[in-house]
Structure formats: structure tokens, C-alpha cells
Design a protein around this nucleic acid. Sequence first.
DNA 1: TCTAGTCACTTTCAAATTAAAAGTTATGAG
DNA 2: CTCATAACTTTTAATTTGAAAGTGACTAGA
Lengths: 118, 118
Amino acid sequence: MSKPSLPHSCKRSPCPIACTLDILGDKWTLLVIRDLFVGKKTYGEFQASPEGIPSNILADRLKRLLEHEIVEKTPYQQRPVRYAYTLTPKGRALGNVLKAMVQWGEAHIPGSQALMKR
Amino acid sequence: MSKPSLPHSCKRSPCPIACTLDILGDKWTLLVIRDLFVGKKTYGEFQASPEGIPSNILADRLKRLLEHEIVEKTPYQQRPVRYAYTLTPKGRALGNVLKAMVQWGEAHIPGSQALMKR
DNA sequence: TCTAGTCACTTTCAAATTAAAAGTTATGAG
DNA sequence: CTCATAACTTTTAATTTGAAAGTGACTAGA
């Protein structure tokens, strides 16, 4: 017994950065979370964002975020049933990550400009 | 003339989060930057990190980080020539992004524990 | 000189992921 | 019926990733 089998989500190492990237280290996940932060709630609204996330990727990412309890899904109407996604406290805690990225992007990437309020 | 052609690095939209993710939105890039923050400098040191980045991916990411002037490469010896990578000011400015990820990971991912100093 | 070893990559190729587009399901409106 | 909408799912091709082996420039040792 050499590898002590990392608990839970930590797939590669116990480093919190590696663990975080195992969940949201890709091109799309944090954009969905950004959308939730600015008040978007539905599948259609996420799809309508200017970056144009592919539909299958969106479905996959929402599923992962649900599994990790970063977002919640509740029906906002019956017949036909339609869903609203919202951030959990765990998801809202990602605000600082987004904020740091906004700051870095605005300071260092020419042409980037904040759309996010706050 | 409908699409005003986004300047420079902004591939998908002018949102600073999207622009930032265009550069470092993947599973490995921020781990290399983490390594640089803790003082690792050489290709071999990056490869030796516990997550085990594949060699071709490491080469690709270092190239991208050089292109974006997030890291610099300088020979630290001749005959045979060997290189040291270091963060530029632009790269060091990513400290807040890493810090936010460490905080979130430690608070929300069971089993994750900081290895990074400060 | 021959052999082994180190470092910093590069190449190869199979497997996994992503992207684009079209299709599905449930339902209401006309 | 037929059309429209929201929320997905499926299909298929293209791209990216990962694992492993290979390369080039040397150095040190037998």
C-alpha cells in the first residue's frame, strides 16, 4: 500500500489548486458560473452567452456542477416542466476566483473589458 | 462588417474571464504557474510534480506561456545549454487567482490541503 | 574510445474530449 | 393538425490529450 487513495474529488494530488482544477479546469465551466453570478438561470440563457458554448458541453458541465453541489436545479414551472439553475453557497464562494480573473484579465489582456457588475 | 474582430488574445468574447480562460483554462497551465510560484524553474522540476504532467503537454504549455509573456526562459548554463523558466510581472500577477483557488479548494474540497507557502 | 547518464525536449499513435449540427420530448398556441 | 419553444440528447468528425519511446547535446567514467 503505497498510494493512499486520495479522498473524494482530489483526482491527481491533494493540492487545493489541482483539486479545484479537477472540477473547473477547462474553458467553459467558469463561464457558466459567471453567467449564474450575473443572474442567468436557464439552459437557454447559458447557451445565448456570447461565447457560444456547444449544447452537449453545456449539458455535461451542468451535470458536473450539480454532482459537485456547486449549482442546484429546480423546476420553475410545470407543464411543460422548465428548470432554473442557481448557485449553492459552495458555488457562490467561487466569487473570489472570478474576481481575481476579472482583475488579471482587465490588467493584462488588451481588448478585454468587464461585463460583470461589481 | 458585423463582427469587429476582437483584439489580441480575446478569442471568444471581450469578457476578461473568457479571455483569461482562453489562455489558462485547462487542467495543467495553472499547475505550472503554481510550480513557478514555489520556486521550481526547470522542465525536469515541472515534470517531477506529483500530478505527473505529460511531457508533450508541458512543452506545449510552456510555449504558450512564453508567447503570452507570462513566463521567461533563460539559459542557466552553457555546454550543455540548460534553461530556467521564471514568471514575468504579468505571470506573478496571477498570484491572486491561485490564492483564491487555494482558499476555495481548502474550504470546499475534502482531502485537499495546501502545499503552497503563503 | 566506448558506454552510460542527464536534461530538455519531440515524435508517434491510440484514446478521450470537444464541436457542430441535427434530432428528441413535452407541451401550449393557433 | 402544424408551428413554436425550452431543455436536452445523439451523432459524427475534428481536435486534444496521454503514455511511451525517441532525439540531440553534452559530461563523466571504465
